[in-house]
């Protein structure tokens, strides 16, 4: 199912078991941070790992998803599930507009354009009245899921977050292993050839971009629901950089890399938070080490060692 190989199925079951056991051992709020970061990284991995496009503006979609979910829950008191869906739709709609512009260039220009467009979104959020400017949207009530399940209990919230993450994770995997995903990989390997075979490569790239942005929006919406807050940090370019780091460290183009990267990066931030700017220095240093000596990332190296694709 979902195109998992045997090794990947075992790894997937292991991951689900870990997700089920961890909240009894570790602090659930920390784990929810890991899960939203992991889903966000999965969305980024879809673009870089399978289409070969480095989006340096992923925070725009994550952040707008987060703002819209937070605002609709606070102002309209919509259900948590509706808010998450709206977050995803916001990401997709914004992705359609920005993606239409960005896919006109590839490679290094694509990275710069996405970065610049995301910066525009950042300035928009800084000025727009509904985002609350520097304060952001705070104290968003979690409410009841489907009007029934009380989300104010952290454990209940955790299971919902876990379900959203696993759903998103399987969706990404399904996309990659569909015929559509095969075309994407073909475009990544040799775009002129895909064009000559009759594929409208720009359409494929745009659809992949929109899907990736939708999942980023869902991750942002879930984050807003969990922490009851949406701020400028969510749309800031450092958040875009962080998701690049997360995926690079876990392993670009690997199935489980983004999740492992999210666990490592979030833990690191958690433990280094008291040391101020040293978090940035450490992140930068890891970036450099990854690029210079460790390009396959943790899961990529593990897979190469075990001679399996994870």
């Amino acid at each position: 199912m979902f195109g998992f190989s045997r090794a990947q199925s075992i790894a997937f079951i292991l991951m689900v078991v870990l997700i089920a056991v961890c909240p009894f051992v570790l602090y659930p709020v920390f784990l929810m941070r890991v899960l939203t970061a992991a889903l966000f990284a999965c969305s980024f991995n879809l673009m870089i790992g399978y289409v070969g496009l480095l989006s340096f503006g992923q925070a725009a979609f994550f952040g707008m998803g987060s703002y819209v979910a937070a605002w609709t829950m606070k102002a309209w008191h919509v259900d948590a599930s509706v808010a998450i869906v709206l977050g995803g739709l916001t990401g997709a709609a914004l992705g359609l507009v920005l993606g239409y512009l960005a896919i006109r260039r590839s490679g290094i220009y694509f990275a710069m354009i996405t970065l610049a467009l995301a910066q525009m979104v950042y300035f928009f959020c800084l000025e727009a009245p509904f985002t609350g400017g520097e304060d952001g949207i705070q104290q968003v009530p979690r409410g009841h899921l489907f009007g029934l399940i009380d989300l104010n209990n952290d454990m209940t919230m955790y299971w919902v977050t876990a379900a959203v993450f696993i759903g998103g994770f399987l969706l990404v995997h399904r996309i990659i292993h569909s015929p559509f995903g095969q075309v994407l990989k073909g475009i990544r390997e040799n775009e002129p050839r895909a064009t000559s075979l009759g594929y409208r490569t720009d359409d494929y790239k745009l659809i992949a971009f929109v899907l990736s942005c939708m999942i980023a929006g869902v991750a942002g919406g879930t984050k807003a629901l969990v922490f009851g807050i949406a701020t400028l940090t969510d749309v800031h370019y450092s958040t875009s950089g962080e998701v690049v780091l997360t995926t690079l460290l876990g392993g670009l183009g690997t199935v489980f890399g983004p999740a492992v990267g999210a666990l490592v990066v979030t833990s690191m931030e958690n433990y280094l938070a008291q040391f101020g700017a040293w978090v940035t220095v450490t992140q930068g240093a890891i970036f450099m080490i990854c690029v210079l000596a460790f390009r396959r990332g943790i899961i990529g190296e593990l897979g190469a060692f075990l001679k399996i694709s994870l």
Partner: peptide
Amino acid sequence: LLLTFGMSLVIEGL
């Protein structure tokens, strides 16, 4: 791009 991005984080952080 990724390497020099990491470099800028290190320099600014320091």
